[in-house]
Design a protein around this nucleic acid. Sequence first.
DNA 1: ATGAAAGCGCTAACAC
DNA 2: GTGTTAGCGCTTTCAT
Lengths: 347, 347
Amino acid sequence: MAGIEEVARLAGVSTATVSRALSGNGHVSPTTRERVQAAAAELGYVVSSNASSLASGRTRNVGVVVPFLSRWYFSSVVDGAEAALLSKGYDLTLYNLSGGEEPRRSVFEHFLLRKRVDAVIAVALELTDDEVKRLLDIHKPMVGIGGPIPGVRTLTLDDVAVAQLATEHLISLGHTQIAHVGGAVELDLDFHLGSTRRRGFERAMHEANLPIRDDLYQPADFTINGGYAAGKQLLGRPYDRPTAIFAASDEMAIGCLLAARDLGLSVPRDVSIVGIDDHELAEFFGLTTVAQFPRQQGELAVDVLMGELMPDAGAPAALDTELPFQLIVRSSTARPAEADARPSSVF
Amino acid sequence: MAGIEEVARLAGVSTATVSRALSGNGHVSPTTRERVQAAAAELGYVVSSNASSLASGRTRNVGVVVPFLSRWYFSSVVDGAEAALLSKGYDLTLYNLSGGEEPRRSVFEHFLLRKRVDAVIAVALELTDDEVKRLLDIHKPMVGIGGPIPGVRTLTLDDVAVAQLATEHLISLGHTQIAHVGGAVELDLDFHLGSTRRRGFERAMHEANLPIRDDLYQPADFTINGGYAAGKQLLGRPYDRPTAIFAASDEMAIGCLLAARDLGLSVPRDVSIVGIDDHELAEFFGLTTVAQFPRQQGELAVDVLMGELMPDAGAPAALDTELPFQLIVRSSTARPAEADARPSSVF
DNA sequence: ATGAAAGCGCTAACAC
DNA sequence: GTGTTAGCGCTTTCAT
């Protein structure tokens, strides 16, 4: 556990020079820099981040706050952010809010305030005004993913457009009886995915002059299990069965797919299914989906943050950035089997 | 951003007393304690963790190192650890090694050494002697999950026993032609799950005097996809088809299950399938499995660590703790369909 | 039980 | 380009 002083002595310079040489801040002649680096290496010297932070006011650490961790989307975002941060010499301190109200309060009232982090990334979180205020008061750069959070730089996915795209894919194939498996309203807490995506679905239907039938809507909870139950309901009906299902997440879509199989229906011959996310299992199941790219979202959030933390080179990124998405057509969607009445049909 | 001095002034005491009152170290009269706490609350004072760490040598932060994050097992462990740490006032700094050799080196050579963490939890990691030495040299408590890591306190799952239990479940049902979908040897890097679990399988077969047939072994990569391919191979053969499959992970077991379905085989009538983990999808698929409890593993690791960090009350935990596991029988296993020749049969 | 004061190990002016 | 020095905001002896 060598300290900066020993390095300085070994290199024959002052501690200030060691600091400059190792951090890259301030000018040091190439020769001394090398001497210092050699000395540091020899002694196995690593700066004490605490001392450094205390003196400089920078921690080289960012807090990432997520509402869940053990779900594909969130762990992927964190994964991407971690890799990006690591490569820039930053640490990632994780705050998981899934514990309930109590932990959530303590995260915002204590943990994030104790100057352990330079900035925070909030993933799919709806922060209260008070929470935002606390963080901004403290003068910490912050970026939200999935927001939007008022007053905070956010990366947002246009969920309405995403859902609309998925639905339009089905419509363009000639489907008219399209069911929607969406988020249950009770789950609409932090991220309004449920209602936003439903809006996109309805917009697409509306623009295509297709009726939106209440009986073709099934709420679920974003899990495979929930999607399975919803799919059974939708596909088990004796008449007027939908020819296609748009599920608001891949996990629910996979549930529908398995429900169809268990009912003896063939996908996509009897029913087309499309989801959202491009979940790690989507390819395996041949699921057509609108991909969002969670790893990249995490990386992008870090880029934006770095732009704020080192205000020199960076373009002053827009306050609100749209995240990319992309329709990925696999084998779960096709034209409906029946003779279709689609006017623009080429047949 | 009030400092300790302002709190001291408002409470009419010295900074030393404020420190003692707020941290609970050292004696303070109940009345002063309350005055101090009131003052702190009024000013919205939160200690600077850097200053505190620098002065005290404790960071109230633990590093958690994982080889992957976006996999159910790892994110569950981290989830459990995070919750446990948060409740004790600790932060969790995450290090993900999945980036490759370069990031791995920098994690061990710089990140973990800069005194940002009091302790480290290594999940399913095989550390090199050098890596272990680095960490122990630095005098940081450390606990491994899944190890064992020589010289480090570890929580280990007896993978041989787990695999043996799963296999014995099949044997006790009367199966004799049991296939094994195990980890490919190439993947045997950090955690030797593949070979250890295979050993358990072989032991069970051996003890039951059942032959271990090479043609009933299929390597895979611990994914659903890989399990699916392996299952197809195993179940697609025209004769001598196994009546049961033991897969070394639930994800592979689920893959086998789906492969069976796609071949028109019924589970468990035509083939029984058992996995390991109790993955979040296991229940949905009715998969019989040997559960391990990753969230609890994370929590337990924190408990052990706390015992080391506050050496007062804690019993001096054993150097190596066995993790619990449990057979959970669902609907993917049953007696083989054919008239069985099992000697101990009650029929 | 409380206060005074000496650091913890660095960084950032400021001189030279 | 490099050295000197004054802190950063706490914790912790050591007195009292």
